[in-house]
Design a protein around this nucleic acid. Structure first.
Lengths: 194, 194
DNA sequence: GGGGCTTGTACACAACTGTTTACTTACGAC
DNA sequence: GTCGTAAGTAAACAGTTGTGTACAAGCCCC
């Protein structure tokens, strides 16, 4: 059988650990937030990233480590909190709906909540990286409780829109629903300063 | 080695197909609503029900068939809708929080949303067995949209309470949170008749 | 009491899982 | 150039999964 002297198309991939790690994180965010933790195999992530599956173990220790790193890398609301206070609601709703990789961190956490370890990771990171800073930003009175109300509202909206889609939030009605979400968010924020 | 003439403890289980089917459904509801579809094996369900795992295939065709049957068997809000109109909010919140088998149908659907087929089943049954009847019950104006608002509120609450628990809804604060949920529900119901 | 259908059990099967190991190859310092 | 280390690959591992099949046994009707 003929064999070409040097493999033509599979010219050796450039070796770049940082790039590989980043590609794995992007693929992980995409798949975990779409199919959840249990329905995503490390081979799926590696294939999407275009790298070998054993590199997951090398760079992140385990599938769980990859999940934590992927979630941690995208769970950050400080940009919105640092922005204009008038723009908070619009920015937040926008960040919630226009998610960069697939369906965003909230979907990633909820779809992966069935796995005990991924669940623990999500609970921890959600509290420290979202709810606590948000409660501080809202300030007294009842910053923590209003932060919780916001989270309830947002997770309910996201669940009903993308995770368990209902007819009232389909493509033809999503625009007005987003306006409603923004108004509802504003109402909770304003509870503090009537 | 001695062998007793007739097995003493494993005396033949009485053969009752209906009872077996029912036991499988209870076990399925419990596990699916706790661990989700992907993290629940047919052997787990069968073991919890105390029957042989191959009976899942016989009685429900497949694991997917079991999921549909289990969800269908518990997704029914007509008792609440038939009750006193004044009691609607209290009954609904109670039904949402005091779920008979483990965590109830909403948790079951959300935790299983990562699986494509279980997801399709959930979307279909949720619309036909909950949202549509609820929208009719609410009536004009905007029955469908107010039903959607209720679903967003409830699914957000349940997610933040049991699926991805936040500190603001822990055991010490859940009582007042339930009162808040009831009031918020009432507000949406009353939107129709100010 | 004895077929015949139903109920239940045990087991085999192939596919897939996350992880680990042994190995090859590229890059950079000397 | 060459040598050592980092980067990447392939394959094997043991465990688990859903499903199907072959077999044992109870129940009911005749």
């Amino acid at each position: 059988m003929y064999k070409p002297p040097t493999e033509p198309e599979t010219l050796a991939r450039q070796r770049d650990a940082d790039r590989t790690r980043a590609a794995l994180l992007v693929a992980a965010r995409t798949l975990f937030s779409t199919r959840g933790f249990a329905n995503t195999g490390v081979r799926d992530v590696a294939d999407l990233a275009g790298v070998n599956s054993s590199l997951v173990g090398r760079y992140f220790g385990s599938k769980q480590g990859l999940f934590r790193a992927a979630l941690d890398s995208v769970l950050d609301i400080s940009p919105v909190l640092r922005g204009d206070r008038h723009r908070f609601c619009a920015d937040m709703v926008s960040a919630l709906c226009n998610t960069p990789d697939a369906r965003g961190p909230l979907a990633m956490m909820i779809l992966s909540a069935a796995d005990p370890e991924a669940h623990a990771t999500s609970v921890e990171l959600l509290q420290t990286k979202v709810l606590t800073p948000l409660a501080e930003w809202l300030g007294p009175p009842d910053g923590a409780w209003r932060a919780a109300q916001l989270h309830i509202l947002w997770s309910g909206f996201l669940t009903s829109w993308r995770l368990l889609p209902i007819q009232a939030l389909d493509d033809t009605r999503i625009a007005s629903a987003r306006r409603w979400l923004e108004a509802a968010t504003q109402a909770i924020v304003d509870e503090g300063a009537p």
